[in-house]
Design a protein around this nucleic acid. Structure first.
Lengths: 150, 150
DNA sequence: AATAATAATGAGAACCATTATCAAAAGGAG
DNA sequence: CTCCTTTTGATAATGGTTCTCATTATTATT
């Protein structure tokens, strides 16, 4: 995820490329994983001192709409954001329902893609639905929580 | 989902089977789909006049912990609840990111199960993670919203 | 059946992530 | 530089969910 692409994307839509916006994109591309808005806020603050939380939310929203960022909801009451990293970076999550820990995984992607394509084709015909994303997540207990919760 | 099973489940854990609780289970088993807590609240009210929203949340929580109900979060700021209907009722969702409409689907379950089992096995070994559920949802635009959002 | 012990409940306050408001600041066009 | 539009920060408002606590219902004990 390097400059030119998203810059064009911004300009085409008449959005301005401000310091806050590129700082937020910077943070997202360095720390690659499922950040909350608050996480982003604190990180960006190190670069953009005076930035307000509202701007973070607004910008994240914007980036999601533009398709540059993915927004997830793992059921703990706060949204997570990740740079949309195309084919190569595609992955899903293992979520611990006790401590909320999130682990990325990217095993069996080829097989997954195959099945997903098939389902997508079937479903979009059957329901006239235009599918643009999918999410395959696993829930359970992480190593540390297995004993504890028992 | 009929009585005996969950009744035992309750008794084993020392939970009481109250009118409110069985009314909530009733509602969940009649209206089968992704209800919000508020949906449940209004439905249950028809049976249990004086019930409060707090009891609905508490009971739903309890049922989720017991594994009788599944809780979903499709990113619209409200949780959804569904009776956990075992093998036969297993399904996933198509979510419209414009109007929030949710469509159930249960195509390709056999193939899905195969892949999911494989992933589960791999992941639980690799990360010492005890997986107990998965979610495969598709996001996009429903029939009605395709024109509108264009 | 009466009483004591415990669990469940309703009402409303509290919480907290997210959104909306609005006046001020920044950026671009001419 | 001036006008016009977009972006921003601070803060209030929103809304789903959780907490508190006094009251009520249920179960266990005598």
């Amino acid at each position: 995820m390097h400059g030119p692409r998203w810059r064009n994307n911004f300009e085409e839509r008449g959005y301005r490329i401000t310091a806050s916006r590129s700082a937020i994109l910077d943070v997202l591309s360095k720390k690659r994983c499922h950040l909350t808005a608050e996480d982003v806020f604190f990180e960006v603050r190190k670069i953009q001192k005076g930035i307000g939380i509202a701007t973070v939310y607004r910008t994240l929203d914007l980036l999601v709409q533009m398709g540059l960022v993915c927004k997830f909801d793992f059921g703990d009451g706060r949204a997570r954001y990740e740079l949309a990293s195309g084919e190569k970076g595609h992955h899903h999550h293992l979520i611990c329902r006790n401590c909320g820990r999130i682990i990325n995984y990217d095993d069996f992607l080829t097989e997954e893609t195959g099945l997903v394509k098939k389902i997508e084709k079937e479903l979009s015909q059957k329901h006239s639905f235009e599918i643009d994303a999918h999410q395959l997540d696993f829930y359970g207990l992480c190593k540390d929580c297995q004993k504890e919760v028992k």
